[in-house]
Simulated assay, not measured.
Amino acid sequence: MIEFKNVQKTYPNGTTALSNINLKIEQGEFVAVIGLSGAGKSTLIRCINRMHDITDGQLLVDHVDVSKLRGKQIRRFRRRIGMIFQSFNLVNRISVINNVLVSFVPDLSLWRKLTGIFTKEQKLLALEALDKVGILDKAYIRVDQLSGGQQQRVALARTLAQNPDIILADEPIASLDPVTSKIVMEDFKRINQTMKISVIMNIHHVEVALEYANRIIGVRAGEIVFDGAPAEVSKRVLNNIYGNVSDSEENNEEVASTLEVVSGHV
């Protein structure tokens, strides 16, 4: 279980990214976090694995106060949490399987780290992870020869190889075309349902969030303004999340685009 208790996050420049966040996420949920650019979505999920430190309140994962972890405790804690980025964070010049094997580096002995030699068991686990996302046949191909969707699935396989309890995904389909996005989202959904791994995803594509997540969290200006099931998301809810945030042309366009796209879903 992930629990935010009165969590605040203020950056050194004085910007408040999160304000009075109170939230519980149970194991096995598929949560989509939606909101305007700059609303605090990325900060919210990155606080969970200590990529960002909170400035006040408590953030508990299975009753462990994350902010109190130090050194090796943080590294052990992060082994339980997979992180998927929009940019994939892969090494393009090496093979797919070697990218997945990177997830085992923290567990290697010093001589294995120096030589880059992995165990047979680790190689089998890497191949199994690739099979789970449907790209086992690409195992020995260089990453730079893959499509964007295939690269994102490699990143997902790398995360699965570490056997996480939680997957955090920061805009995982933002750079993918609609067809590829659907394939990747089906992977996330299947993994969530069959492996009971919690998925917390920051996503701009509201219509995709409504289709795949079983819980929607709306963030506006660092505050949670909606928390409920996809079926409860109405035009009024979307206006509350996306509307009246800023008079800037960019935000007005994003609001209009979002409401237009999801009009058939609510």
Rank of each mutant, 00 (worst) to 15 (best):
R215F: 07
M51V: 06
L136E: 04
V262S: 14
I183H: 09
A169H: 03
Y212W: 13
Q145V: 01
N163P: 05
F226C: 07
A139F: 09
E260N: 12
F188S: 05
A17L: 04
F30A: 13
E121M: 03
E249Q: 07
S234G: 12
I94Q: 13
V233W: 01
S263Y: 04
S67I: 00
Y242F: 07
P230Y: 02
S175N: 15
M201S: 06
K132R: 15
N251L: 11
I34V: 15
R79A: 14
E250N: 13
L108I: 02
N20K: 14
E253G: 07
H52S: 10
T115D: 11
A17V: 03
N22L: 04
R80K: 15
G57Y: 05
S147C: 06
I45Q: 07
E128N: 15
S181W: 01
N98D: 11
G134M: 08
R50G: 03
I167M: 10
K138C: 06
R70T: 07
L238Y: 09
D107E: 11
S234M: 13
N20I: 02
G218V: 01
S248Q: 15
I25D: 06
S95W: 01
S175C: 06
M51W: 02
I54D: 04
I191N: 00
L210S: 09
I173E: 03
E254T: 11
A157K: 13
V179S: 09
N239D: 10
T15A: 01
N6F: 04
R76N: 13
R236G: 10
A126P: 14
M51G: 06
R190C: 07
L168H: 01
A209T: 10
Y11P: 10
K113I: 05
P106R: 15
F77D: 06
G148V: 00
L60Q: 11
Q27M: 13
V262G: 10
I241K: 07
L36T: 05
D177I: 02
N163V: 09
V143E: 09
N202C: 07
G38P: 04
S175V: 03
Q145R: 15
G28L: 13
V219F: 05
T159C: 11
E29P: 09
S246D: 12
K182S: 10
M1H: 14
T194Y: 08
G35H: 08
L130Q: 02
R236W: 03
I45F: 01
S257L: 12
I117K: 15
Q145H: 12
L101F: 04
H63C: 11
R142G: 02
Q122L: 06
S234L: 08
H265K: 15
G149Y: 00
D65F: 01
G14E: 08
L136F: 12
I74L: 10
K182R: 13
Q86T: 08
T258M: 12
A32N: 09
R50D: 01
K182W: 00
S109E: 12
C47Q: 10
F118W: 09
H63V: 02
C47R: 14
N251E: 15
R70D: 12
I54A: 03
H63N: 14
F77C: 05
Y242M: 04
N99F: 02
Y212S: 12
G57I: 02
G149N: 01
F4N: 07
